[in-house]
Amino acid sequence: MQLDKINIELLIHKQLRGEISQDEQALLGEWRLIPENEIYYQDLVEIWNQSKNVLSSSLNFDYRNAYNRHLNKLSENNTQEVKPKVLSISLLRKIAAIFILGLVAMWWFTSGNQIKINTPGYHLLAEGSEIYLSENSTLGIDSKDNRKVYLDGQAFFKVSRDEKHPFVINANSGKVEVLGTEFEVNERGVFVKKGKVRVSNPQNSQSIILVENENAQFESLNQISLNDENQFNWFTERLAFKNTPMSKVVKEISEVYNVHVTIDDNSSETNCLFNSKSLCKLNLHEVFDVLSSAYDCNIKETSHGNYVITNLKCK
């Protein structure tokens, strides 16, 4: 092979992909000795490296329209999968409220007309709201009004917004109505971040409207301002990382999924900083997918529940 006959771009490409042979490598090295050639080489390297992520950042797709089209198709086909009518309408509602509901003690499910969910984890309700149910908790959805739910236990809610039709959560110690706002609830009471929420106590039919930065306890229904909103963030901050060293990320994943994840000794860079929105909706393998695509690393299960990350490289 002579230098002027070879396909230099191809050699450079092979080099970039790590598929270059020793002979070709030597040839390329010789070619690069000429300063002009070296500039060209650097340009192609730059184009190749920079092009890796160009399209992902500018592309943005919204699933809602596609999902609605799919629902329409299903109802046209008139198969068993036809959805209750309320579905497609509610999907257009903007998700507007976030809150946590944690009500201990037993809840007596009075009416039989409920759809019950008792699998812990993430669920999407038919009318568009999302919940994350804790262990040993049950959520009942009123079969006639799917924005009326009954909770026994603890759950995180993200409620779709519908001003005309409040989302009502019943629990034995209190009742919470979402009026189109953002708020959080725990076993003691309610904390409102934005907007308005009505909290009532069914025992004495007392009710109270809370506004921004106020909280109330179900028992007394006294309004109190709350300073420490962090105590309510137990859910939303789970598996959300901001400049977190990988060693810590791995530790938290191990805790949440009850597994043992380690980084192998050859990956010296355990202090890569990881950034991510909360991964709490994903299952373990999806979380691994995110990590391995972020760092080009491999994750292997060595024995049951034990995982090792190899070849970790900071970017």
Partner: peptide, 11 residues
């Protein structure tokens, strides 16, 4: 079943 299905599909 319908509700469960639509939850799954949306997910």
């Amino acid at each position: 079943k319908l509700i469960r299905n639509s939850i799954e599909l949306k997910t």
